[in-house]
Amino acid sequence: MNGTQAHSRAPIILGSSLGLVIGATIMILLHESSHAIAGAVQGLHPTQVPFAVDYTPEPGTSAHVIALLAGPAFSLVSGAIGIAVDRIAVPLLGRPFWRMVWVWTIFTSVQEGLGYLQITAIMGAGDTAQAFDLMGLSSGALITATIIGWAGLPVTAWLFAGAIRPMCSTVHEKRALAVWPWIIGTVVLLVLMTIYVLLGPVKDAGVIVAVLAGALAVGIFAPISMMFGTEKVGADKPLTMHWPATGGLILLVILVAVNLVLTQSWIWP
Rank of each mutant, 00 (worst) to 15 (best):
T240G: 01
S138R: 00
F74R: 00
I184T: 06
L69R: 02
L212T: 04
I88P: 00
I195K: 12
A80K: 10
A24K: 01
W268S: 09
A84F: 13
H64R: 15
R9I: 14
Q118P: 07
S17P: 08
W182H: 04
A257I: 07
T240I: 00
I220R: 03
S33R: 07
L198Q: 15
R9L: 14
S8T: 15
V202Y: 07
K203A: 04
S34P: 06
I250C: 11
L177S: 10
D133R: 01
A176E: 05
M135D: 05
Q118E: 11
A70H: 04
G248I: 04
I148N: 00
G79D: 02
L153G: 01
V155G: 05
Q42L: 00
V207M: 07
S169F: 10
W102T: 10
I122Q: 11
E112T: 08
V258Y: 01
G136F: 03
I254L: 06
P181D: 02
W104H: 00
I147N: 06
V253A: 12
W180S: 05
T61N: 10
H45L: 12
T108A: 01
S109N: 04
I148Q: 05
V202N: 11
T230Q: 09
I83M: 11
G152L: 01
V110M: 05
A84S: 13
P96I: 15
G23L: 01
Y55C: 01
G115H: 02
G162Q: 09
G152F: 00
G3F: 11
M27C: 07
S8K: 10
L44Y: 07
A217R: 10
V110T: 09
E32I: 05
I106L: 14
M226I: 07
W98N: 05
V188F: 08
P72S: 03
Y116C: 00
L76P: 10
L255R: 06
A125C: 13
G219D: 03
G94H: 14
P57V: 07
G200S: 07
N259G: 02
I122D: 11
A131W: 15
A157S: 00
G140D: 10
G43F: 08
S109I: 05
S8H: 14
R9C: 07
M123Y: 13
G19L: 04
D133S: 09
